[in-house]
């Protein structure tokens, strides 16, 4: 077995996709089980895109082809707005280790520029994404955001079908996938349509926590199939050396509050 693959096995011999985000890998007991589809969910400004992008960057740096599918904004604009990581290198884009695509470009190539998708359209989109993943031997994929795609699916049945087919397709290709999900601040569920969270293999909840007038960015792994993991809340910072995590201090908790 090649050395690189050996390193990805945890103590139990399971294959892991090491996120490269130190604290998160520790929380996940070694990384995301390879082939999992993980929902990263949270309201605006909680760091979902930055965390997801860093996951891809570490993959690309370690020779795993990584793909970012941008749904809501042009990827070039997105690149300008993410934290300028010390370890980001333009050559990753040039060498296609890191591939950035706008979903709109895929839609127009497929002739799918419409307000609502049918079941057939869903099949076509899933197949197109699966084809790109196989063609470029993609090992890590981020779709930002799944909520925007679901908006065009309209019904829960279609959303379920889409995420299930996509997850299965990517898992078979050995690709670990992050679906970015947007929720409103104070939302009680983990996804906008209530379906995404039930189907995903993992849920990472990112939030803004108000404590005595201070606003903290937090991260909590709510669920992750295939691994033991911490379910505690952590505070994070988005820095040029990457996303940093420390435990949320509990001494300041108030009854009935946080």
């Amino acid at each position: 077995m090649p050395e690189a693959e050996e390193e990805e096995l945890n103590a139990a011999g399971e294959s892991r996709c090491i996120t490269g985000i130190d604290g998160l890998d520790r929380i996940l007991n070694g990384g995301i089980p390879r082939g999992n589809t993980v929902l990263i969910t949270g309201s605006c400004g909680t760091g979902k895109t930055t965390l997801s992008f860093e996951f891809l960057l570490h993959g690309a740096i370690h020779d795993e082809n990584s793909l970012f599918i941008s749904v809501t904004e042009n990827w070039e604009k997105l690149l300008k707005n993410v934290i300028p990581y010390d370890f980001f290198d333009d050559s990753l884009l040039k060498s296609k280790k890191l591939i950035m695509i706008d979903l709109g470009a895929i839609y127009s190539k497929l002739g799918l520029e419409k307000a609502e998708f049918t079941m057939e359209d869903i099949d076509i989109i899933v197949r197109a994404i699966g084809d790109i993943v196989r063609e470029w031997s993609i090992k890590r994929l981020v779709i930002d955001s799944i909520t925007s795609i679901c908006f065009q699916l309209k019904t829960k049945e279609k959303i379920r079908d889409f995420i299930l087919s996509l997850g299965k397709n990517l898992s078979e290709a050995g690709c670990t996938c992050i679906l970015v999900s947007e929720i409103s601040p104070g939302e009680q569920s983990y996804s906008m349509y209530g379906v995404e969270e039930a189907i995903a293999d993992g849920i990472v909840l990112m939030a803004n926590l108000q404590r005595r007038g201070d606003l903290l960015r937090t991260l909590q792994v709510v669920k992750m199939r295939g691994t033991m993991h911490s379910r505690a809340k952590y505070v994070l910072d988005l820095t040029s050396v990457g996303v940093l995590l420390v435990p949320l201090l509990k001494g300041g908790s108030v009854p009935g509050g946080i």
């Binding site: 903290l216 910072d237 050396v241 940093l244 420390v246 949320l248 201090l249």
Partner: peptide
């Protein structure tokens, strides 16, 4: 100074 976690994060950085 009440944002103790952020102090830890800056030190970590």
């Amino acid at each position: 100074p009440t944002m103790l976690e952020n102090i830890m994060l800056k030190v970590e950085y």
